[in-house]
């Protein structure tokens, strides 16, 4: 659940690279369109990931007003997937193999088995309905901070890769040590790097 509804989870990122003058509203729109979500309906692709508009996940037009809000940009990472379980595949493969036996009077050899299974897998994939997941991202250009409304390693990697490809900017997850480095006084920054775990709570 994210920014638009439900109980959100917020992953924070810091953009390391200073933003150059190239990063205009228009440029950001162009890049979003370049890496926009591509529909995989009617194909056998198992996954697709790309950007869609914040308030209209079926749209990738990215008119300025759809993603630019003053010094803040907002858009959504859309991930579509279709999953074919091994159990389903094996069930239909057993039927395919039985039909092959009836027709040829023998079991398919290893090469043929592989070929039959792949053909069947592609046929079944076409019949599986797609699942769509949406994860919003809000980019505060003034503070070089991004909020990604999703969590979990797999999802974070997908977001980091897509963001990196789209804008060519290095981003770093804000975690306790990075937050600490930003919050301590200059003189304490190196001391923080040298800290070791303390004896908190050894009493009791």
């Amino acid at each position: 659940m994210g920014l638009l509804k439900g109980n959100p989870t917020v992953t924070r990122y810091r953009i390391l690279d200073p933003l150059t003058n190239d990063f205009t509203e228009e440029f950001i729109g162009e890049r979003l369109r370049k890496y926009a979500f591509q529909n995989i309906e009617g194909t056998t692709d198992e996954n697709a990931v790309g950007w869609v508009e914040l308030f209209a996940y079926l749209s990738t037009a990215f008119e300025k007003e759809s993603y630019s809000f003053g010094n803040t940009y907002a858009f959504t990472m859309r991930m579509d997937s279709r999953r074919l379980s091994t159990k389903v595949l094996n069930r239909y493969y057993d039927l395919t193999e039985a039909r092959y036996f009836n027709k040829h009077g023998r079991q398919p050899n290893a090469k043929k088995k592989k070929e039959l299974k792949e053909t069947l897998r592609l046929e079944l994939l076409k019949k599986i309905l797609l699942t769509t997941d949406l994860y919003e991202a809000v980019w505060f250009s003034r503070t070089s901070e991004i909020w990604f409304f999703g969590s979990g390693e797999k999802l974070r990697i997908a977001f980091e890769e897509l963001f990196g490809q789209t804008f060519g900017l290095a981003i770093r997850l804000i975690v306790p040590i990075t937050m600490g480095l930003e919050l301590v006084d200059d003189n304490d920054r190196l001391s923080l790097l040298d800290l070791v775990p303390g004896p908190l709570g050894i009493g009791g």
Binding site: R14, L16, R172, L173, V175, P176, I177, T178, G180, L181, E182, D186, N187, R189, L190, L193, L195, V196, P197
Partner: peptide
């Protein structure tokens, strides 16, 4: 002489830095 937080992040291996200081959380 003191690097900024961003300079440290650029110089350090992020994963190593993060994992090495998990105790802070």
């Amino acid at each position: 002489d003191i690097p900024t937080a961003i300079e440290i992040l650029e110089q350090e291996d992020f994963f190593e830095l993060w994992q090495g200081k998990l105790f802070l959380g």
